[in-house]
Write a protein that binds this DNA or RNA. Structure first.
Lengths: 193, 193
DNA sequence: ACCTGAACACCGTTCAAGT
DNA sequence: ACCTGAACACCGTTCAAGT
């Protein structure tokens, strides 16, 4: 995890890990079957950083808090979402999280059926990321060439609004994440009723 | 793309691509700056497979069709979602898609503000995948050890319902994908009004 | 202009050998 | 039980050299 935090997921190589541990890379094979095995373990460790909900809030508050907490972890470990996507979520830590979410949903009277749908639609959020694919705010990246306005008139309109102070000034990944989450929670609440 | 379809994204190496083209790997550097450059091109090519909407349907039908079409492409190229997540969506093909979605939304009277939120919340679906992280149906994978029922009672309940014929028998990735999409579209429709 | 050969610094993984 | 050294089959990328 230290290696990944410092240099991204590609910095996690058997050789570099061995070096960090003061050992030859080949020694690791005594403790881990493959690199796959090692990465499974890493994925599990990140998910364990997510803390269980405190107190006994209603289902919506509980779920919202869990998801937002999970997201905070992923922001701290930017390599984690990619790792989870690649490896799936069949490990014990992932199961623990799903169990907790289901307990919340069933406890709130969700049918098995609706809870199942909810799990699917929330899945990427439960694990803390929504794959916010399109890059708005140039956070850190080089500004890049503005797309030509004549080919992309509508993109241009939105980009202009976004850069305008006070217009879409609150364009912020956290805000967008919460917006999407609340949209889904609203929908689930309605279906439950 | 052929290499990726046949052997996954890891099969796309400069050396293997050279071999496929009857040329040494180093010759590729005359046509492409890096491997990064090559993968950017590959990402662009997949997105170009998505066909624009036909006719002039209402915004919801248009968007739904686009998203479902995009998803069909990703099912055909299972390596593509991972590639898109990793590389972002700043290429021209991605911009074309965003432009089309925005045109639909603005045409339907969405405010710049709401269209912007919609783009974020739909982003991963616009590009054809929702990162369905948790594995329900054991599609092809080894069944794996059933999680111990005492540790995961709620997971157990759901798994039992899912395997029960007729219960959650329709548990199907396509159905879940559409469920999530409709949930979001419902929400947007309400906010628009 | 386009391609090749040799080289460099990396990978994951094996296997026999050491203590 | 745990680790090492040498080896194998791979990577991406460079650079000078060929046609």
């Amino acid at each position: 995890m230290d290696l990944a935090d410092e240099g991204g997921i590609d910095a996690v190589s058997m050789r570099k890990l061995g070096q960090r541990l003061g050992v030859e890379a080949m020694a690791l094979y005594r403790h881990v079957r493959d690199k796959d095995d090692l990465l499974d373990g890493l994925a599990d460790i990140v998910l364990r950083e997510i803390e269980p909900p405190e107190g006994d809030p209603d289902w919506r508050t509980a779920l919202r808090g869990q998801v937002l907490g999970a997201r905070a972890i992923m922001v701290r470990h930017p390599w984690a979402p990619g790792l989870l996507v690649e490896r799936g979520t069949a490990g014990p830590a992932a199961l623990d999280r799903i169990e907790a979410v289901l307990a919340t949903l069933f406890g709130a009277g969700f049918s098995v059926d609706l809870a199942h749908h909810a799990l699917h639609v929330l899945s990427s959020r439960i694990f803390g990321f929504s794959q916010d694919l399109f890059d708005d705010s140039p956070r850190g990246r080089e500004p890049g060439p503005m797309p030509p306005a004549d080919r992309y008139p509508n993109v241009e309109v939105m980009a202009r609004a976004a850069s305008h102070e006070g217009g879409l000034g609150y364009c912020d990944d956290d805000v967008e994440f919460a917006f999407g989450l609340d949209l889904i929670l609203d929908g689930l609440e309605r279906l439950r009723g």
